[in-house]
Structures are given as C-alpha cells and as structure tokens.
C-alpha cells in the first residue's frame, strides 16, 4: 500500500503558519503525491501562498471558530470528511497545545490510535514508520500503525527542516464545521501576550538558558544580559518556570520549546532528560555548572565546572569591553 495523500494541520500564529507546519509540509511532499493543509481561525486566503510554497496543493479551511477552543471542532470537521470517503493515508500534527487537543479528539472520533512525540519519519514498504526519542534521547524507538488508516502522527518541532518548494499558492476549499454540542463549550475569553524583545526563542541563533543553579529570580538578569550581548534569546529550565521566576514561554524541553540554535549556553541547569530533549539538537553546547557530575556535561562541547555567579559576570564584562 502506497502513501498517496497526507494532510498537515497548519495552525496559525500572528497571521502566519506556525514554523512546524512548514517543516511538516516539507516532509509530507517528500513522502506523498498529494498534500493538503488544514487551517482554521480565518484568513486562509492569506496563508494559501505560504502553504502552497511549502508543498500544499489544497488548503482545507474551517474558517473562524468564534473564540472556541479548536480541538473538538477541527477534529469533528476532519472526522466527518474522512467518513465521507476523503481518506488521507496520514495526518501530520505539529506538537502544539491545540495540535495535541485536535489529535486526541480526532483519534477518539475515528477510533484510530495516535503516535506522539515523533521526531523522525521513514517510509518502509509503503508504510510510514515513526521515530521517537526515549530515555532522554539515548534510544530511538521506531513504531508503526497496524490498523486502518489514517495514521495520526503528532510531530515535534524541528524534526525536519522547512524548505520552500517554490510552488504557487494552494487552492482553498471551505469545510463546514459540524454542530458538536457540549464538547465544544470551552471558549477563550481573553488572550494575554507576554512582552518579548529580541529574537524568538525557537528561532534564535544563540540561546542562553538559566536553571535553578542561578539561586534566585533576580539572577536571571545575568542570563538575559548575556543573551542580549550575543543577539540571542533567553531560555529556562522548567524548575525556574514552575518557581515563577520567568514566564512559561521561556521554557525549553519536553513540555516547553524545542530549540536548535548554533549555540546553546546552559547556566546552572542539571541536564534532566526532559530538558535535554528540547536542546540536544543545538549545533554547539556550552554548560556552566558547579557539579562536575551534572548530566548536562555529557552533551556539552565546552563544559565549565564553576559557579555561575563568578563566571557569568566576568563573561558579560569581557563581552561588553569588546563591543
């Protein structure tokens, strides 16, 4: 059985498809002849250019969802479409908050399983096999679906490069969202956007992250200062996000952002497996930690056994003196 058609969920953010959607379109067009993107939230015509450029021939547009959480509505619309006979072989879903909601709902509606935390895909005898990094990325598990298609794959950011195919805009087809009753009763009352300056964490060339080893919230300023001097973004371990030192949007790791910068600098971070999966893909890694046994050193190209309160201020001074 060949892979003919793949659908890619193209969630949007600030009026553009999320970067992972473009990565998944790039991968989908290498694996299937027909690639369709699915959008919601309005403005599909404006997205069709980019989605087409990355490989979508068609955009299924669900339109504005009126402030409802997308999970149940997008899943219901897609399930209806599949039941009507328009069957893709696979559905690629970016690992985002809404993406996970849609994948879970769609899986239950269609009664097909999901494979999540996918970091790679290969084709074997006309079948898709997914790769999953487990145990802190030390082992790669390869999995496959054994039942009816479509297979739903929830795929992590930066698993594939996004490359333009130079195609023209995709054609937009409107899908109606069915009435689903109580399951879609959750609605957004207000959005809060945290202020941010400098490059985005998941797009920055340099990421400087801080962890519990900083000792107190106010010392995070050292991390921000170093990031600023290197024209990078400031990240964090979950420990200091949970402690309320920095907003969640800074979190790097399994439940936070996946980053793949040229350089990642980990300051006072132990290197728990859930942190490593979010940053191990960096080209170069520097770690500063006072414990020579800290697991972060096992992935660092340059490991500094030392106190962040001594090393960082001197480093910042030296960089300032050069600029």
């Amino acid at each position: 059985m060949a892979i003919d058609t793949i659908w890619v969920l193209a969630e949007q953010q600030d009026g553009a498809p999320v970067p992972t959607a473009l990565e998944l379109l790039t991968q989908a067009r290498a694996m299937a002849g027909t690639v369709k993107a699915v959008t919601w939230g309005g403005g599909a015509e404006g997205l069709a250019g980019t989605l087409g450029e990355y490989g979508a021939q068609v955009v299924y547009d669900l339109g504005d969802l009126g402030g409802k959480l997308p999970g149940p509505l997008v899943a219901a619309a897609l399930a209806e479409r599949v039941r009507s006979g328009d069957q893709p072989d696979a559905i690629f879903v970016p690992t985002t908050y809404d993406g996970r909601d849609i994948a879970g709902r769609l899986s239950a509606r269609l009664d097909v399983p999901v494979l999540t935390n996918v970091v790679g895909l290969v084709e074997e005898n006309g079948e898709l096999h997914s790769e999953h990094a487990v145990f802190g990325g030390t082992q790669i598990v390869t999995a496959r679906f054994t039942g009816a298609r479509p297979g739903i794959f929830v795929i992590r950011a930066k698993s594939f490069p996004a490359e333009s195919a130079g195609g023209g805009p995709a054609s937009v087809e409107t899908l109606t969202v069915p009435e689903v009753g109580a399951v879609s009763a959750a609605s957004v009352q207000q959005r809060h956007v945290e202020e941010r300056s400098g490059p985005k964490l998941d797009e920055a060339d340099v990421v400087v992250s801080g962890g519990r080893g900083l000792g107190a919230a106010e010392h995070y300023a050292l991390v921000e200062e170093l990031a600023r001097l290197l024209h990078g973004a400031a990240g964090a371990s979950r420990a200091i996000v949970d402690a309320g030192w920095v907003p969640y949007s800074h979190q790097v790791g399994q439940t936070g952002k996946t980053v793949k910068p040229t350089l990642y600098i980990a300051c006072g971070i132990s290197g728990a497996t859930q942190h490593l999966v979010g940053m191990k893909g960096a080209k170069h890694i520097i770690a500063i930690n006072k414990d020579p046994e800290a697991p972060i050193f096992s992935v660092a190209d340059l490991g500094i056994v030392g106190d962040v309160h001594k090393v960082l201020p001197k480093l910042i001074e030296a960089l300032k003196a050069r600029s």
Binding site: Y97, S187, Q189, E194, S249
Partner: peptide
C-alpha cells in the same frame, strides 16, 4: 499558549 496564556471558560 505559545505567546502567554488565554483565559478560558467552560
């Protein structure tokens, strides 16, 4: 959310 948080009612 990616950018901060949403107030959701259900």
């Amino acid at each position: 959310t990616e950018a901060g948080y949403d107030e959701v009612e259900c």
